[in-house]
């Protein structure tokens, strides 16, 4: 199997992860009981295994896509000249890690 097949296959995980997140947020809107119920569901080993797979998938997608993204930028986009490819590559990692750290800290109750 070629790597791009695996890359495409992460699509299944992404679609599902979106729907799991939708369910979680939907339940938050339903009130405290529904919220408690959905959090308890997430403790199910199947959900935990799925989220572990999802984590592997997003890391794989990030690493592969961040490598492919810079060269997909034309030399100029209208008046905008994108940064050199290695810098753009580094910027993608910085944004990804930065957003993940901040979002994780907020969700984990470290900040806010």
């Amino acid at each position: 199997m070629r790597l791009y097949t695996l890359f495409g296959a992460t699509g299944i995980v992404y679609l599902l992860v979106g729907f799991v997140a939708l369910r979680v947020v939907w339940n938050l809107g339903e009130g405290p009981e529904a919220w408690a119920a959905v959090l308890e569901q997430l403790e199910n080993p199947i959900y935990i295994a799925f989220h572990a797979l999802a984590l592997v998938s997003v890391v794989f997608v990030a690493v592969r896509f961040f490598r492919l993204f810079p060269k997909a930028q034309p030399a100029f986009i209208g008046p905008v000249v994108p940064p050199p490819r290695p810098i753009l590559h580094a910027m993608l990692y910085a944004a990804w890690i930065g957003i993940t750290v901040v979002l994780s800290a907020i969700l984990a109750g470290v900040i806010f």
């Binding site: 992860v17 959900y47 990804w96 957003i99 750290v101 994780s104 969700l107």
Partner: peptide, 18 residues
Amino acid sequence: GTMLITGWILIVGLAVPT
């Protein structure tokens, strides 16, 4: 999507449930 979902998976999907 990848940038936003990673932290969600880490905390809501894994760290809190475990």
